[in-house]
Amino acid sequence: MKSSLLVAGFGGQGVMTLGKLVGECAYEQGLKVTFLPSYGPEQRGGTANCTVILSDEPIGSPSTNRLDVLCAMNQPSLEKFAPNVKPGGVLLLNSSIVDPGTVTRDDVKVAAVDAEGIAYEIGERRTANVVILATYMTIADIMPIEEVRKIAMAKLAKKPELVALNEKAFDRGVAITKEIIASWA
């Protein structure tokens, strides 16, 4: 059992935080995990990205060109990294600003989630990444989603005013993703 994820977006979108949160959930669950941030000059102004690999066995490379899931938080990230998703893999798109119509691959599954729209409905812009976290974890299906919820909410508890909203965002993310997965079948 192994799952590789690349999260990419603009600097400031919370790309690294999201990747780290995925890593921390897996770590708390006792899985092997590596988190590799992009370490280049492109971090300023351009795209930032990180690779997270989860496994129940020791992890060799912390990087891969055959991703199980690409989480594209902006349009340039989709264009740059879509070729690195393996056939049968998943493009998880933040469809608030990424146009699913621009996907050129027909051998991957697409999960378009209007994370920022959902966050707006919930009433807190900052919960968009929690929606994406829930979406990814539901797709990856590598640990029980209830466990993820518990761990993630504990990690995010530093901002108590957001706890209830984060829970709401998480649950919405899970619900939407279940519908998306059903639509693939």
């Binding site: 890593g23 590596t34 988190f35």
Partner: peptide, 10 residues
């Protein structure tokens, strides 16, 4: 190597 210094791992 720089990768070992950059990654997060348990």
């Amino acid at each position: 190597d720089g990768f070992i210094a950059a990654i997060m791992e348990p």
